[in-house]
């Protein structure tokens, strides 16, 4: 199969944080100083990527209320605000991306991750793991059921706090469309104070990461819904010979 007539819209680096963003201190020693080398003519190695549509997902892989419960007979459920997080994965031309892998991870309601290096004061929740994954459907839609994560302090400035957020990883059709981002929650007063959010200079770029409260999709007497659409790079076909 030839991929020579396929390409992706060039990544607009102004829509992303720069590697060196000194307000986020860890980036200082982890950012390349040399310019990126532009490939000009991406090859099959960059234009293709893994297809996970045949991977077997577990029955609760996208349900964080159930996928780590310790004792189902005791009815154990995680602490916190029950929410549904959902949205559509589309490309920059609005084309839905079906059957693509969406992965997410998050802290529990107290702001603590189930990770051996997280030593925050807030306790682990015995019924909460904090990881989910699913494939988008035919229309590019994904859904997770979870609890709203808590904010937590972290060592950056003397008193830095992360706003509540869920890490989101999307594959898309190629390694060129690979994207890891974070969903924040509409209205959270910690968003404008966060040094990691501030790595982005353009307020519209920040808007792309803010999940919207969606009352229409919330479930009465059960859970609120937050909608978070993810846009990956657009795929172009070139129709004419380059001669």
């Amino acid at each position: 199969m030839t991929h020579d007539n396929k390409r992706f819209v060039a990544r607009d680096r102004n829509s992303h944080p720069p590697a060196y963003a000194p307000g986020y201190k860890t980036s200082v020693a982890r950012s390349p100083q040399q310019a990126l080398v532009s490939m000009q003519q991406p090859t099959v190695s960059e234009l293709t990527g893994p297809d996970f549509s045949h991977m077997r997902m577990g029955p609760h892989d996208n349900d964080l209320l159930l996928n780590f419960r310790q004792d189902a007979s005791q009815g154990g459920l995680p602490q916190g605000e029950r929410i549904m997080m959902f949205g559509r994965v589309v490309d920059q031309f609005g084309k839905p991306i079906p059957h693509t892998l969406v992965e997410m991870w998050q802290a529990n309601a107290g702001g603590r991750y189930r990770h051996k290096n997280d030593k925050y004061l807030a306790p682990l929740d015995p019924n909460f793991g904090g990881v989910g994954r699913c494939l988008t459907d035919e229309q590019g839609v994904y859904r997770f059921r979870t609890i709203k994560p808590g904010p937590y302090p972290w060592p950056n400035d003397m008193n830095s706090w992360r706003p509540a957020h869920i890490h989101v990883s999307v594959t898309g059709p190629s390694i060129s469309t690979r994207l890891i981002t974070q969903m924040y929650f509409e209205g959270d007063p910690l968003i404008p104070l966060c040094p990691i959010v501030h790595t982005l200079k353009d307020p519209l770029a920040v808007e792309t990461m803010i999940g919207r409260l969606d009352m229409a999709h919330s479930k009465p007497m059960d859970c609120l819904a937050y909608r978070f659409d993810v846009v990956v790079r657009g795929e172009l076909q070139t129709y004419f010979e380059n001669q």
Partner: peptide, 24 residues
């Protein structure tokens, strides 16, 4: 939350660090 860049296109969702707990 998606943002148009023009009448024809959307802006790619912004990247954020995978953070220290990417492993979970």
């Amino acid at each position: 939350n998606s943002q148009p860049t023009s009448d024809l296109m959307l802006r790619e969702t912004a990247s954020q660090t995978a953070g220290p707990y990417v492993h979970i």
